[in-house]
Simulated scan of single mutants.
Amino acid sequence: MRLTERYRQVRLEAVRFTESRRAQRVGKLLLGPNVNDGYVAKTVIIVLLSVIAFLYLKPIIYMVSTSVKSLEDLIDPVVGLIPRSVHSQNYIDAWKGLRYPEAFTNTFIIAFFGSLFQVFSCALTGYALARLRFPGKSLFFVLILITFLVPPEITIIPLYMIFNKLGWLNTPLVFLVPAILGQGMRGALFIIIFRQFFLSQPKALEEAAKMDGASVFRLFFRIMMPLAGSACLVVFLFSFVWYWNMHFEPSMFLSKDFIPLSLRLNELSTELLGNKSLSLSVAVGKDPVSEGPKMAAAFLIILPPLLVYFIAQRWFTEGIERTGLVE
């Protein structure tokens, strides 16, 4: 009897040990050695990222879905994000209403050349604030920070009067000339980015170049500027997107002759449909007649910056890391 009880006790302990080992294995498999390495943590992270991604993509999905809906699908409350049929006429109407080739050219001139000029001027200013010594250096940097904090609505009237006297209204000069002088769209932010980047570079490069007889400008263009390629790309993409999407400044300075896409979007409904949509807009709470062309026009407007970002995504991410913006 004693041997039998002893055998049962040993067997029970062996079963408990095996179950505990299995529990530990299951625990490590689900939670991982550091809790966040297991399947549970990974599943939670994937679910959270999926929800966040859906929240970001939902407006774009709604835009694309609405842009290919017919009037019947827009009025029918049963139809959700997936239309019954693809209606391409909305894009034809949007193309004509936006006068897309002309407006695209105007917007591209402002965005591309404004960003290009701003990269050069802000890089030069940021390098001077980071490396050179001159009287009033700290004061200049404080003034740049103040221009970054002042809302553009405060300075819009003085700028309008200056541009009007110079005869620059309704021309791209109202954006290109300030960009050349480092006062373009978010110019103060870009100067700060370049300043921080040049401060992070070793001074031995400059000292070696000065010993070889290099001037300040040669040092900047031959050594420091090539090293700042990542910062230049980040500034160019940020500037390009902001110039492309800006609406307030063009509405004040570009009222005729030179109209970008952002202003054409406001005029799209009137140019396409006139006033015949007023009766329907009162009935359903929105304008179903112009909703499809408007969404198609909005998609045509955001498509070029999206393509630029998709092409330069890898270099843009590397530039963000190397310029220290993630900190």
Rank of each mutant, 00 (worst) to 15 (best):
T171R: 10
M1Q: 12
L49E: 07
A103N: 09
S230W: 09
D287F: 05
S85Y: 08
F220E: 01
L29Y: 05
K256I: 02
S88N: 06
A23Y: 04
R218P: 00
F258I: 07
F134V: 11
K137I: 10
I60R: 04
R195L: 03
S230C: 08
S290F: 08
L173H: 03
L173C: 05
S239L: 06
L74G: 01
P152W: 10
F113I: 10
K256F: 01
W242S: 07
P158N: 13
L139K: 13
S262L: 11
L273C: 05
T171V: 12
D287C: 09
S88G: 12
R25N: 10
L71T: 01
A128S: 15
L325F: 04
I82V: 14
T317E: 13
L166H: 02
Y160R: 01
G324Q: 08
E327I: 09
L306D: 12
V68C: 08
L71S: 03
R2W: 10
V10A: 14
I301T: 02
V40I: 15
R186K: 14
G213D: 06
A204T: 05
F221K: 10
K276F: 11
W95S: 14
V86R: 09
M161G: 01
I110H: 05
S200P: 00
A204D: 06
R25W: 03
R99W: 00
I191R: 08
P158K: 09
P304D: 12
P260T: 07
F117V: 11
L268Q: 04
F141W: 12
L74W: 01
Q9K: 12
I157M: 09
S138R: 15
V64L: 15
Q201R: 11
L254F: 02
F310T: 03
G38H: 02
F248W: 09
M295P: 08
Y7M: 15
N266I: 01
P226V: 04
G324K: 04
S262Y: 06
V150C: 10
L116F: 12
A297E: 06
F113N: 08
G319M: 05
C122L: 11
L268T: 01
A14Y: 01
F163D: 08
T18H: 06
